[in-house]
């Protein structure tokens, strides 16, 4: 049963990821990515990471993708006719990397069974992550807030008219 669920999620994720790259219209690409985000969230639920599943839906599907769609609609793009002229090189590079990964997987013995039942089940997933986040990872957490602040200021400055214009 677990295998069937995993194969469903994995199949949809890989298919929609391929669609994101293959579709010509950016709006359709973004919508394919939306489906992929939901299925990644489903995969997280099967891995007992419920908090991250919710965050995935809220942040990725709710915030990031809406931002993408806004920009796509704002720019009113015409569709792109061809791939990059280096697409053969790109495909070749991807194939080589895939072959390397497959070789490594086949050579190594990828047996990492469940070590023990996750000990955090006494508490909920969210509580455990919160405790870890506010004790062990407190400093990275604060740095993350700084990153968000910098990104916010940067986005405002980059898009504001009259600051970045070339004086000519």
């Amino acid at each position: 049963m677990e295998m069937v669920v995993f194969l469903y999620f994995a199949g949809v994720i890989v298919t929609t990821a391929g669609l994101v790259v293959a579709l010509k219209n950016p709006v359709y690409s973004a919508l394919a990515l939306l489906v992929m985000f939901f299925h990644v969230a489903g995969l997280f639920v099967t891995l007992h990471a419920e908090f991250l599943a919710i965050i995935q839906v809220l942040v990725y599907a709710g915030a990031i993708l809406v931002l993408y769609l806004f920009v796509v609609m704002l720019l009113n793009l015409k569709r792109e006719e061809h791939f990059h002229h280096q697409w053969l090189v790109g495909l070749f590079l991807g194939f080589v990397l895939f072959a390397e990964a497959a070789l490594l997987l086949l050579k190594g013995h990828a047996t990492l069974g469940k070590t023990e039942a996750p000990a955090q089940l006494a508490q909920g997933n969210t509580e455990s992550i919160g405790e870890l986040l506010y004790s062990t990872y407190l400093f990275p957490f604060e740095v993350a807030s700084l990153i968000l602040l910098v990104a916010m200021v940067g986005a405002v400055i980059l898009t504001k008219k009259g600051i970045m214009e070339v004086k000519s």
Binding site: V21, V72, L75, F83, Q86, G90, L91, G94
Partner: peptide, 16 residues
């Protein structure tokens, strides 16, 4: 990851 990598290499639309 590889699909994403190939997408970065072969698409020309910056949004994609």
């Amino acid at each position: 990851f590889l699909i994403g990598l190939v997408g970065v290499l072969i698409r020309r639309n910056i949004i994609i």
